[in-house]
Design a protein around this nucleic acid. Structure first.
Lengths: 137, 137
DNA sequence: CTTGACCATATACCTTGGTATAAGGTCAAT
DNA sequence: ATTGACCTTATACCAAGGTATATGGTCAAG
């Protein structure tokens, strides 16, 4: 049930150094240690690493991922603040989904034009993602 | 109709150096020049820069963006190859959308639990993005 | 009781994606 | 014909996100 850093690294397919780096950065809680000083992890550490890797692929920075990981439900006033932050994150994610859907539609059109053998030598990919420039950020 | 590098940079809100950097990297075609050697751009250069910036926010590397920008419809055999690449990109984008939707659902549940004042002190954000690990890449 | 595979810390290095700076040419306006 | 705001190339530097390496301790197996 308790994993060494090497076992966690293997399971999540990341470099050992990366885990220690995340610990230093504050993305990973400081784990308990054996008497000899070896780090010991529960297996949710593997899930945490996989979450981080996925979120990175989706364009989130380590700082943003840290915020995402910090979101959880609390009592009272802390709850309101947490809910506000969560709703902000939902907005960000929602916008990112819309952008990707737009890109997907353009790629669809591109593939369709191709099967129809209608050569379009200007760059149609550029049609995508052209508005909402001023609202995002 | 012809823009200097500074005008393009202003319009797209990027650093001038970034445009020259993209040119070196091959993301930007080498522009025509004035007799004095000044770069001259058509205004689609601005669209191209905006596309690059958006795609970066969506988690694409410059190398991937270069491939996206290289996709276009051609005649004959080149068309088939282009179509295959386009369909691959669509798969990547589609998977990314699914991942984000999953993250969104988790954030939704988190926000809902909070309004209902049901404190959940384990980290619920981790529920997200947990399967399909072995199929992606 | 030693060998090999682990673990620890500390420090140096690498890649990606830029940004800044130095040294100088161009050009429109005064 | 000079000033200021542009442009050129070349080179150096920077931040983020790791990765490698040096030096040494731990531990189970033979």
């Amino acid at each position: 049930m308790a994993l060494t850093i090497g076992q966690v690294a293997d399971a999540a397919d990341v470099n050992i150094q990366t885990i220690r780096y995340y610990e230093r950065r504050g993305l990973f809680p400081t784990p308990r240690r054996t008497p000899a000083g070896y780090r010991l992890y529960a297996d949710d550490a593997v899930a945490r690493l996989r979450f981080i890797k996925h979120a990175q692929e989706l364009g989130f920075s380590l700082r943003e991922i840290q915020e995402l990981l910090g979101l959880r439900v609390r009592h009272g006033a802390a709850c309101d603040a947490g809910e506000r932050k969560t709703r902000q994150k939902i907005e960000v994610v929602q916008q990112r989904i819309r952008d990707l859907q737009r890109m997907r539609r353009t790629l669809d059109r591109l593939a369709a034009a191709c099967t129809a053998r209608r050569p379009t030598d200007d760059c149609p990919i550029l049609e995508v993602l052209e508005d909402h420039d001023d609202i995002s950020h």
